[in-house]
């Protein structure tokens, strides 16, 4: 790992100041992706801003029709939160399926979505639950936030403050984890609201997380296995690697969608 300047901050204002004064900065929250990346010298920031001590980023709020999670809340805190378990149990179980217990004690929701790994779990929850991502400057709808591979709408001087998830009538997240890393080889987050059925997919597309509109339309007509079985994900643009080629992966997405539907009917 190349060396860097380490700055531990206590307020969002301090982060903004450091971001405006320095180039080549990276935000450190839990570091479970960033530190391994720096160890491999795939990232070499000159300044690392540690936001883990900012109190105003560490909270879980129940707003009635939605829940808001601060960006430095760890996966373990989400999965063991009474509010999340009660209001959106599928989100608690998603958090419990990330990495392993030690990683979940450090890794954060803000880090996961800001990184936008194409096989990460949280981005599906954001898209499926119509999340609003609050930054230090503005509020961004999830659909506008995730742009592509490891790419988000975040500007250079912007950090994730919190994520607000709408509470669905019911929801289910099903993933086929890579047996070694536990990242999704295919993950499908299905949410049912009064006026919409949302289906978000991770682990599959070369462009990262996406909403599977054909499946949404089919399930909006009737939430049934028959309707789900009629829709197949095309393997065009689906990732292909040593773990799974694109046809196999596309099929995994179909199966995860069926399991998610099965879980809700």
């Amino acid at each position: 790992m190349y060396n860097f300047i380490y700055e531990k901050v206590n307020t969002i204002q301090e982060v903004e100041k450091l971001l405006s004064e320095n180039e080549e900065t990276k935000i450190l929250a839990g570091g479970q992706t960033l530190i391994p990346t720096m160890k491999q010298r795939l990232a070499s920031p000159s300044t690392l801003i540690d936001i883990s001590g900012i109190d105003e980023l560490n909270f879980i709020n129940d707003n009635g029709n939605s829940v808001t999670i601060g960006s430095t809340v760890t996966h373990n805190e989400v999965s063991s939160s009474d509010i999340i378990m009660k209001k959106i149990p599928s989100l608690a179980s998603l958090a419990e399926g990330i990495g392993d217990p030690h990683v979940r004690n450090m890794g954060t929701i803000g880090g996961s979505i800001a990184n936008n790994d194409p096989t990460a779990d949280y981005p599906t929850a954001c898209l499926s639950l119509n999340a609003k991502i609050k930054t230090n400057n503005r509020e961004i709808n999830a659909e506008d936030f995730f742009i592509g591979l490891f790419e988000t709408a975040l500007e250079e001087n912007e950090i994730v403050v919190s994520v607000e998830f709408n509470i669905p009538k019911k929801s289910s997240y099903m993933k086929f984890p890579n047996p070694a890393s536990r990242y999704a080889m295919a993950g499908v987050y299905l949410s049912v609201f009064d006026d919409a059925v949302n289906v978000a997919v991770t682990g599959a597309s070369e462009n990262g997380v996406f909403k599977w509109t054909e499946m949404e339309e089919a399930l909006s007509i009737n939430l049934s296995l028959e309707n789900a079985k009629n829709i197949k994900l095309s393997s065009d643009g689906v990732m292909s690697d040593i773990h799974a080629d694109s046809a196999y992966r596309a099929n995994l997405v179909d199966i995860m969608a069926l399991r998610a539907v099965e879980n809700l009917i």
Partner: peptide, 27 residues
């Protein structure tokens, strides 16, 4: 492994298990 996978480096930080190869001393 030094790649956050094997858990041989697990210690407790504030009573919670973490991988000490995936954390800076300054943290």
């Amino acid at each position: 492994c030094d790649t956050s996978q094997c858990g041989a480096c697990v210690v407790h930080l504030e009573g919670k298990a973490v991988k000490s190869c995936t954390m800076l001393a300054v943290q």
